[in-house]
Every structure is written in structure tokens, then in C-alpha cells.
Simulated scan of single mutants.
Amino acid sequence: MPILNRVADLQPDIQAWRRDIHENPELLYDVHRTAAFVADRLREFGCDEVATGLGRTGVVGVIKGRKPPGDGDIRVVGLRADMDALPIQEATNLAYASKTPGKMHACGHDGHTAMLLGAARYLAETRNFAGDAVLIFQPAEEGGGGAAAMIRDGLMDRFAIDQVYGMHNGPGFPIGTFAIRTGPIMAATDSIDIRIEGLGGHAARPHKCIDSVLVGAQLITALQSIVSRSVDPLESAVISICEFHAGNARNVIPQTAELRGTVRTLTAEVRELVEKRVHEVIAGVAQITGAKIDLVYERGYPVTVNHAPQTDVATRVAREVAGDGNVHEMPPLMGAEDFSYMLQARPGAFIFCGNGNSAGLHHPAYNFDDEAIVFGTSYWIRLVENTLAA
């Protein structure tokens, strides 16, 4: 495939950009160096417009094709990459490992940004399409909702985006493969913060106390019944209580306990059900035990839902790049993605690009595999050239 050969020629530059970004990780919206690096490259490539400051630190590049779109054709397609890193101490011992203690690109956003920059360079050189390619470089995917912030700043309307596409690397998927599905592909994520107020006292006199530890244990067990007994077995949900803080002495029943956890769901209906049942279960445990239990239930990213027509387009393009046998239908993941906000605003699709047998995402030993660059970059290019066919 000629495009793969051309991208292979660009691979050393894309790899160098990726490793530079990897060495200099930034968190959430504080991606000032990365955003400036991206904006400088887009200007060097000759983008028709480079906009900065969307969603505080987001960058958008616009490349116009050689021909205007015809009547009824898709006029503008958006491609999104995320730029932020994670608050993790890197443990890779790479020559280009993070220079900033406690921060690293443990999710591959360095690779996402570099691959989209590579596509921008190619598209700006060739312009073999009709309409506008809008390249979206987003901050704060890792918990900050940067996609929603960019949309609030007018991303979709300002650039008249018709369709929008996202891509993430996938550890465990072989290099040169893609994975995608129609419908829910990643989960909604909500947070639970619980404070239990019991009655503290001496460990030898539990009958004079309301034991916040026992209440917390009962509450954790009861919450698990929501998934096992309230949610349809053919649906998916996860409730995980991952923090339990109480007490500081072995012979004192603590007055208070705090629990924190997460809820993951794949449909709006199950999300509503689980939230309702969490409130009901907590109220029930409070009544049974006599403890006062306060709940803060906060909704996070919505379900990431791929639209069927755009998923078909993405699948065809991925097969063109990787071959028919290397594009797989995947089950949904219970991780979350703020690209979900973009898919609520416009039709589109989210795809995974194989990262080989690497450490998992958010692991201190994770590293984006540079061998995936040719495939991911080529996917972006052919997606534009197919969607905006000249």
C-alpha cells in the first residue's frame, strides 16, 4: 500500500516527536509545552488554520483539501488525539523516560499526539481530499473532561464538524491490528464518596457503640448485591469500593469511616438503575445500623457509543490499512473515555490500534510501541481521504 510506504518514511520524525513528548509529560489542562509543540508543528506543516486555547489548552489544526465538497457530501471530519499524561512514577528505564518525577505517559497519549501530527504533515502535503480535515489535540482526558471543555468553547460549531473520530492504543492487541465495535465500546464512570458517622468507643464495649467499621463492611457487601441482584444478568455493571479509611488504634471503635469507589455501566438505563439502588441501599443500611451515612454520587464520563454508519466507515478503513484478517470486533471495555462527549455531539467512532504485548495502560512499566506508528498514522490519513473523497 503506497501510503504505508510514505508513512514509513515519516516514521523516524513521528517517533522523535513521540519520544520528546514522552520525556516531558504534563497533566490535565497544564499541557502548555505539549500544546505549543503541537501548534508549532502544525504551522510548520502549512495548516490553513491553527487555533489554540480551546478548552483552555486544546489545539486545533485545519487542513483544506484540493477540491471543495460536492452537494450532499460530508464537508468536515474531525480527528481527535489526547495530550495529557498521568501522575505515575515511570518505571521503564528507557533512554527517553520522563524527566519529571511523578509524571509519565502511562496511557500512550504521547503516541496518539505524534500519530495525528504525522497524519497532519502528510495531509498538508498531499491534500488529496475534498473538504476540511480538522485535527483536534485535546487536554485533560485523564479525569478532567477536556473533550467537554473544548465542546463548550465551540469546537463543533466553530469548525462546522460533521463527523468525529477517535483512536486509542490497545495493549494486548498485536501490532498491525485494530479492534472496534458498534454501540457501547467504553463505559460510563461515576464516583461514590461515603461518610459513615457511628458512635465510637472502647473495643471491649461494642454494645455501647455504633461501629463504623462494621457498618462500612455491611455497606460494601450490600452494594455488591446491586450488580448481582438488581442488574439484568445480560447487562453489565461494576461497583468497586477501593478505599476504606477508619480508625487509628486497635482497641478503639472509630466514630467515623470513609469509603470511596467507582461505578461503571454501559447503558443510560443501567446507569440510572444503579445510581437509584446505591441511594436506596445506603439508606437501608443506615436504618438497620443506626449510623448516619452521607453519600456524594457524582456522574463522570458518559458511555462511549459508536454510531453504526461511522463504525462501518472506520472498519473499512482499518481493513484497508491492516488487511481483512487484522480488524476485529471487540467486546466493550469497562474503562471510560471522554471522547464520549464528542460522540454525543456528533456522529463518529472510536477504534483501538494494537500496541502489542506491552504493559497495561496506567502501569508504571507501560510504553507506547513505536512500531504501531505506521498503522495508526495511515489509518488517520485514509480515514480523511475516504470520508472526504475528492
Rank of each mutant, 00 (worst) to 15 (best):
D294F: 15
I192C: 08
V274E: 10
I192S: 02
L214S: 13
D157T: 15
L219K: 00
H202W: 09
Q255M: 04
F244E: 11
R250S: 14
V278N: 03
Q255G: 04
P254Y: 06
G200S: 06
E275M: 13
K276C: 04
I282H: 02
Y165R: 01
T189H: 11
E272C: 02
F159K: 03
V227T: 02
M167P: 07
L259Y: 00
E280I: 03
G261W: 03
I194Q: 03
I210W: 15
G183H: 08
R271V: 01
E235C: 06
V263A: 12
G198H: 10
A283K: 13
R264N: 08
A286D: 12
I196N: 01
D193G: 05
E243Y: 13
I192Q: 05
R158N: 08
Q218C: 06
L234S: 11
D190A: 02
A179K: 09
Y301I: 03
V296L: 13
I282V: 13
A246M: 07
F244Q: 12
H279G: 14
R299Q: 14
T265Q: 05
N248Q: 15
G247W: 14
F244W: 11
G170V: 14
V215Y: 02
D294E: 12
V227H: 01
I196F: 13
R299Y: 06
A203N: 10
H207T: 08
G176F: 03
G290S: 12
H202C: 08
R299N: 08
K276G: 05
